[in-house]
Design a protein around this nucleic acid. Structure first.
Lengths: 147, 147
DNA sequence: TATGAAAATTACATGTC
DNA sequence: GACATGTAATTTTCATA
């Protein structure tokens, strides 16, 4: 997609700290603030930067249970599954993948009881396998330039 | 953790757009800019907000292959596994979970060849199961107040 | 609320094809 | 000469004591 060194630096800086000011970004990449601003604007426009989000500690927000639920969903039920399950607030991420167990859901909830009823709802669409998350040593590594 | 309505609103706003200015945040929650700033500062200080990051499109950055690799790692090899595998730039996330297949790795790479050699490296620590990601209909839902 | 800093906007310069 | 991309200068908005 034809990015130069400065674009990659900006991407890395913004993946590490999305609230960094344009002035500071400019300073770090040795560019004036307007030039840095324009670079970032173009990265957004091209769809390379898709958004900016605060990361929060789910545990501190009263949701200590994290789980990965894998589900086998029959293709006929796919639409309803997407409409109902994927819309639930406990579903933080959902990947449609190859193989027999075709959905991977990342779940966050307040108690094992809540997880239980959630899994039961998912099971109306097919078999599930649930794994509780002990820890996530790598949380969200940024995409870096691959040499 | 004793958050009020305004704190939750700020969390939702910042999870949706981490670059929103304090003035704008204040406007949205009917607070002065300094008051909003102080609220956010406290959320950071309390560890509720852990950071801010730009989201990027891996595909547009030349990494069209996303995969979930599940690995069975013998506990004796755990330390070396953490040191070597979890440090790789292709590993975007890693969860240590309950059950036999004790690691879930989210992989992003440029080609199936790259994925292959990565999986081979992981297999030195134990058996793996790899699923290619077709799509991720839910990418990173924010944590919202649960009623 | 007041001050300095940063963002947005405008105009202008430079380099590349 | 036209376009992309940068700096400089100015005004408005924002951050922060």
């Amino acid at each position: 997609m034809d990015l130069d060194d400065v674009d990659w630096q900006l991407l890395e800086l913004l993946q590490a700290d999305a609230r960094m000011s344009y002035s500071e970004l400019g300073r770090r990449v040795s560019l004036s603030a307007p030039a840095a601003t324009e670079r970032v604007r173009r990265l957004e426009e091209r769809g390379i930067i898709t958004g900016y989000s605060a990361q929060v500690d789910a545990e501190k927000l009263g949701r200590p249970i994290a789980a990965i639920v894998r589900a086998k969903v029959r293709s006929l039920d796919g639409t309803r599954f997407r409409e109902t399950i994927l819309a639930l607030p406990q579903v933080l991420a959902a990947d449609h993948v190859t193989g027999d167990e075709c959905w991977f859901l990342r779940i966050s909830c307040g108690s094992t009881g809540e997880l239980e009823s959630l899994v039961e709802r998912i099971q109306r669409y097919g078999e599930t396998t649930t794994s509780l998350v002990f820890s996530s040593p790598v949380r969200r590594r940024g995409i870096t330039r691959q040499n």
